[in-house]
Design a protein around this nucleic acid. Sequence first.
DNA 1: ATAACATATTGGTGAACACCAATATGTATT
DNA 2: AATACATATTGGTGTTCACCAATATGTTAT
Lengths: 98, 98
Amino acid sequence: MDETLKIMKLLSDKTRLNIVRFLLDGEKCVCKIFPQVKRTQSTTSIHLGKLENAGILKSRREGKKIFYSIRDLRVCDVFKAVGDKKGKILKKCCCMEG
Amino acid sequence: MDETLKIMKLLSDKTRLNIVRFLLDGEKCVCKIFPQVKRTQSTTSIHLGKLENAGILKSRREGKKIFYSIRDLRVCDVFKAVGDKKGKILKKCCCMEG
DNA sequence: ATAACATATTGGTGAACACCAATATGTATT
DNA sequence: AATACATATTGGTGTTCACCAATATGTTAT
Protein backbone atom coordinates (compact mmCIF):
# COMPACT_ATOMS: atom_id res chain seq x y z
CA MET A 1 0.00 0.00 0.00
CA ASP A 2 0.90 3.62 -0.43
CA GLU A 3 3.22 4.41 2.47
CA THR A 4 2.45 8.12 2.51
CA LEU A 5 -1.27 7.41 2.49
CA LYS A 6 -0.84 5.01 5.39
CA ILE A 7 0.89 7.62 7.53
CA MET A 8 -1.63 10.30 6.60
CA LYS A 9 -4.53 8.05 7.53
CA LEU A 10 -2.97 7.32 10.90
CA LEU A 11 -2.49 11.00 11.62
CA SER A 12 -5.92 12.02 10.37
CA ASP A 13 -7.77 11.06 13.53
CA LYS A 14 -8.11 13.48 16.42
CA THR A 15 -7.41 10.92 19.10
CA ARG A 16 -4.34 9.49 17.38
CA LEU A 17 -3.03 12.93 16.59
CA ASN A 18 -3.32 13.91 20.24
CA ILE A 19 -1.62 10.71 21.32
CA VAL A 20 1.34 11.44 19.07
CA ARG A 21 1.45 15.04 20.21
CA PHE A 22 1.55 13.92 23.83
CA LEU A 23 4.33 11.44 23.11
CA LEU A 24 6.44 14.14 21.49
CA ASP A 25 7.18 15.13 25.08
CA GLY A 26 8.62 11.67 25.67
CA GLU A 27 7.65 8.14 26.68
CA LYS A 28 4.32 7.85 28.46
CA CYS A 29 2.33 5.14 30.24
CA VAL A 30 -1.10 4.14 28.89
CA CYS A 31 -2.67 5.14 32.18
CA LYS A 32 -1.47 8.70 31.56
CA ILE A 33 -2.33 8.75 27.88
CA PHE A 34 -6.03 7.99 27.88
CA PRO A 35 -6.99 10.69 30.40
CA GLN A 36 -4.88 13.15 28.41
CA VAL A 37 -6.65 12.44 25.12
CA LYS A 38 -10.03 12.17 26.86
CA ARG A 39 -11.01 8.77 25.58
CA THR A 40 -11.83 5.51 27.32
CA GLN A 41 -9.04 3.07 28.08
CA SER A 42 -10.33 0.67 25.46
CA THR A 43 -10.57 3.23 22.70
CA THR A 44 -7.11 4.54 23.49
CA SER A 45 -5.68 1.04 23.50
CA ILE A 46 -7.02 0.39 20.01
CA HIS A 47 -5.40 3.53 18.67
CA LEU A 48 -2.10 2.79 20.36
CA GLY A 49 -2.19 -0.66 18.81
CA LYS A 50 -2.72 0.74 15.34
CA LEU A 51 0.07 3.26 15.71
CA GLU A 52 2.45 0.64 17.04
CA ASN A 53 1.48 -1.89 14.42
CA ALA A 54 2.28 0.63 11.72
CA GLY A 55 5.67 1.33 13.20
CA ILE A 56 4.90 4.86 14.35
CA LEU A 57 5.14 3.95 18.03
CA LYS A 58 6.93 1.37 20.09
CA SER A 59 6.06 -0.03 23.51
CA ARG A 60 7.88 -1.30 26.54
CA ARG A 61 6.55 -3.16 29.54
CA GLU A 62 7.58 -2.21 33.04
CA GLY A 63 5.78 -4.29 35.62
CA LYS A 64 2.07 -3.93 35.13
CA LYS A 65 2.42 -0.79 33.10
CA ILE A 66 3.17 -0.34 29.43
CA PHE A 67 5.00 2.68 28.11
CA TYR A 68 4.61 3.97 24.59
CA SER A 69 6.98 6.24 22.70
CA ILE A 70 7.64 7.43 19.18
CA ARG A 71 9.59 5.07 16.96
CA ASP A 72 9.18 6.65 13.52
CA LEU A 73 10.72 10.10 13.73
CA ARG A 74 9.15 11.16 10.45
CA VAL A 75 6.05 12.15 12.39
CA CYS A 76 8.11 14.87 14.05
CA ASP A 77 8.97 16.27 10.65
CA VAL A 78 5.34 16.15 9.61
CA PHE A 79 4.36 18.23 12.62
CA LYS A 80 7.10 20.67 11.75
CA ALA A 81 6.06 20.75 8.11
CA VAL A 82 2.49 21.76 8.84
CA GLY A 83 3.56 24.30 11.43
CA ASP A 84 1.95 22.56 14.40
CA LYS A 85 2.67 24.06 17.82
CA LYS A 86 4.24 20.83 18.97
CA GLY A 87 6.39 20.73 15.87
CA LYS A 88 7.88 24.08 16.64
CA ILE A 89 9.17 22.89 19.98
CA LEU A 90 11.11 20.08 18.34
CA LYS A 91 14.67 20.91 17.50
CA LYS A 92 16.05 17.70 16.17
CA CYS A 93 14.35 16.30 13.10
CA CYS A 94 15.37 13.24 11.21
CA CYS A 95 14.94 13.86 7.52
CA MET A 96 15.17 17.59 7.17
CA GLU A 97 18.88 18.05 6.66
CA GLY A 98 19.73 19.02 3.10
CA MET B 1 -10.69 23.42 14.53
CA ASP B 2 -7.31 21.81 14.80
CA GLU B 3 -5.36 23.05 11.77
CA THR B 4 -2.98 20.11 11.69
CA LEU B 5 -5.87 17.68 11.89
CA LYS B 6 -7.59 19.47 9.04
CA ILE B 7 -4.58 19.10 6.75
CA MET B 8 -4.06 15.49 7.73
CA LYS B 9 -7.68 14.65 6.98
CA LEU B 10 -7.40 16.25 3.57
CA LEU B 11 -4.28 14.27 2.75
CA SER B 12 -5.60 11.01 4.12
CA ASP B 13 -7.65 10.09 1.08
CA LYS B 14 -6.14 8.23 -1.84
CA THR B 15 -7.79 10.35 -4.49
CA ARG B 16 -6.89 13.66 -2.89
CA LEU B 17 -3.34 12.51 -2.23
CA ASN B 18 -2.94 11.59 -5.89
CA ILE B 19 -4.39 14.91 -6.98
CA VAL B 20 -1.85 16.79 -4.89
CA ARG B 21 0.96 14.55 -6.11
CA PHE B 22 -0.03 15.26 -9.70
CA LEU B 23 -0.13 18.99 -9.05
CA LEU B 24 3.36 18.96 -7.60
CA ASP B 25 4.43 18.82 -11.24
CA GLY B 26 2.62 22.11 -11.83
CA GLU B 27 -0.75 23.57 -12.70
CA LYS B 28 -3.18 21.14 -14.32
CA CYS B 29 -6.61 21.28 -15.96
CA VAL B 30 -9.49 19.31 -14.41
CA CYS B 31 -9.87 17.39 -17.65
CA LYS B 32 -6.33 16.08 -17.16
CA ILE B 33 -6.65 15.46 -13.46
CA PHE B 34 -9.59 13.08 -13.28
CA PRO B 35 -8.24 10.57 -15.80
CA GLN B 36 -4.90 10.67 -13.97
CA VAL B 37 -6.42 9.84 -10.58
CA LYS B 38 -8.85 7.36 -12.15
CA ARG B 39 -12.04 8.81 -10.76
CA THR B 40 -15.15 10.21 -12.40
CA GLN B 41 -15.31 13.87 -13.23
CA SER B 42 -17.87 14.48 -10.49
CA THR B 43 -15.90 12.73 -7.79
CA THR B 44 -12.73 14.55 -8.76
CA SER B 45 -14.54 17.86 -8.77
CA ILE B 46 -15.72 17.33 -5.22
CA HIS B 47 -12.21 16.60 -4.01
CA LEU B 48 -10.77 19.59 -5.84
CA GLY B 49 -13.42 21.74 -4.21
CA LYS B 50 -12.52 20.52 -0.75
CA LEU B 51 -8.82 21.07 -1.30
CA GLU B 52 -9.39 24.54 -2.68
CA ASN B 53 -11.85 25.46 0.03
CA ALA B 54 -9.25 24.51 2.63
CA GLY B 55 -6.64 26.67 0.98
CA ILE B 56 -4.46 23.81 -0.19
CA LEU B 57 -5.17 24.47 -3.86
CA LYS B 58 -6.13 27.47 -5.95
CA SER B 59 -7.90 27.59 -9.30
CA ARG B 60 -7.90 29.75 -12.37
CA ARG B 61 -10.32 29.85 -15.27
CA GLU B 62 -9.08 29.95 -18.84
CA GLY B 63 -11.96 29.81 -21.28
CA LYS B 64 -14.01 26.72 -20.63
CA LYS B 65 -11.26 25.06 -18.68
CA ILE B 66 -10.27 25.45 -15.07
CA PHE B 67 -6.71 24.96 -13.91
CA TYR B 68 -5.79 23.92 -10.39
CA SER B 69 -2.45 24.35 -8.67
CA ILE B 70 -0.96 24.17 -5.20
CA ARG B 71 -1.45 27.22 -3.02
CA ASP B 72 -0.33 26.00 0.40
CA LEU B 73 3.29 25.00 0.06
CA ARG B 74 3.26 23.18 3.38
CA VAL B 75 1.99 20.12 1.57
CA CYS B 76 5.33 19.94 -0.25
CA ASP B 77 7.10 19.79 3.07
CA VAL B 78 4.75 17.10 4.28
CA PHE B 79 5.61 14.95 1.28
CA LYS B 80 9.26 15.54 1.96
CA ALA B 81 8.85 14.77 5.65
CA VAL B 82 7.34 11.36 5.07
CA GLY B 83 9.87 10.50 2.39
CA ASP B 84 7.36 10.30 -0.47
CA LYS B 85 8.83 9.85 -3.94
CA LYS B 86 7.26 13.07 -5.11
CA GLY B 87 8.67 14.87 -2.10
CA LYS B 88 12.19 13.92 -3.02
CA ILE B 89 11.91 15.60 -6.38
CA LEU B 90 11.03 18.91 -4.79
CA LYS B 91 13.96 21.18 -4.15
CA LYS B 92 12.37 24.31 -2.81
CA CYS B 93 10.35 23.94 0.33
CA CYS B 94 8.70 26.73 2.24
CA CYS B 95 9.08 26.09 5.95
CA MET B 96 12.15 23.95 6.22
CA GLU B 97 14.84 26.55 6.49
CA GLY B 98 16.28 26.70 9.96
C1' DA C 1 -30.80 31.47 -29.26
C1' DT C 2 -28.99 26.96 -29.51
C1' DA C 3 -25.66 23.46 -29.34
C1' DA C 4 -21.46 21.67 -27.52
C1' DC C 5 -18.23 21.42 -24.09
C1' DA C 6 -16.14 21.79 -19.14
C1' DT C 7 -16.97 21.78 -14.49
C1' DA C 8 -19.98 21.84 -10.31
C1' DT C 9 -23.80 20.08 -7.56
C1' DT C 10 -27.23 16.73 -5.95
C1' DG C 11 -29.18 12.24 -4.40
C1' DG C 12 -28.59 7.77 -2.97
C1' DT C 13 -25.71 3.73 -1.49
C1' DG C 14 -22.19 1.11 0.74
C1' DA C 15 -18.08 0.67 3.41
C1' DA C 16 -14.90 2.13 6.81
C1' DC C 17 -14.17 3.22 11.40
C1' DA C 18 -14.34 5.78 15.95
C1' DC C 19 -16.61 5.14 20.01
C1' DC C 20 -18.14 2.89 24.50
C1' DA C 21 -19.31 -0.98 27.66
C1' DA C 22 -18.26 -5.39 28.81
C1' DT C 23 -15.19 -9.07 28.91
C1' DA C 24 -10.68 -11.30 28.45
C1' DT C 25 -5.72 -11.53 29.11
C1' DG C 26 -1.69 -10.76 31.56
C1' DT C 27 1.13 -9.27 35.64
C1' DA C 28 2.24 -8.46 40.52
C1' DT C 29 0.99 -9.12 45.42
C1' DT C 30 -0.48 -11.55 49.46
C1' DA D 1 -4.57 -19.66 44.41
C1' DA D 2 -7.03 -15.59 44.92
C1' DT D 3 -7.30 -10.63 44.49
C1' DA D 4 -6.21 -6.34 42.48
C1' DC D 5 -4.49 -3.74 38.92
C1' DA D 6 -3.15 -2.47 33.86
C1' DT D 7 -3.93 -3.22 29.26
C1' DA D 8 -6.02 -5.67 25.25
C1' DT D 9 -9.94 -7.54 22.73
C1' DT D 10 -14.78 -8.10 21.37
C1' DG D 11 -19.56 -6.79 20.07
C1' DG D 12 -22.70 -3.53 18.73
C1' DT D 13 -24.02 1.25 17.23
C1' DG D 14 -23.90 5.53 14.82
C1' DT D 15 -21.61 8.69 11.86
C1' DT D 16 -18.77 10.09 8.33
C1' DC D 17 -17.64 10.10 3.70
C1' DA D 18 -16.01 8.33 -0.90
C1' DC D 19 -18.16 6.94 -4.83
C1' DC D 20 -21.07 7.08 -9.16
C1' DA D 21 -24.97 8.56 -12.15
C1' DA D 22 -27.73 12.15 -13.26
C1' DT D 23 -28.62 16.87 -13.44
C1' DA D 24 -27.44 21.77 -13.15
C1' DT D 25 -24.50 25.75 -14.05
C1' DG D 26 -21.48 28.29 -16.75
C1' DT D 27 -18.67 29.30 -21.03
C1' DT D 28 -17.69 29.47 -26.03
C1' DA D 29 -18.97 29.02 -30.78
C1' DT D 30 -22.26 28.97 -34.52
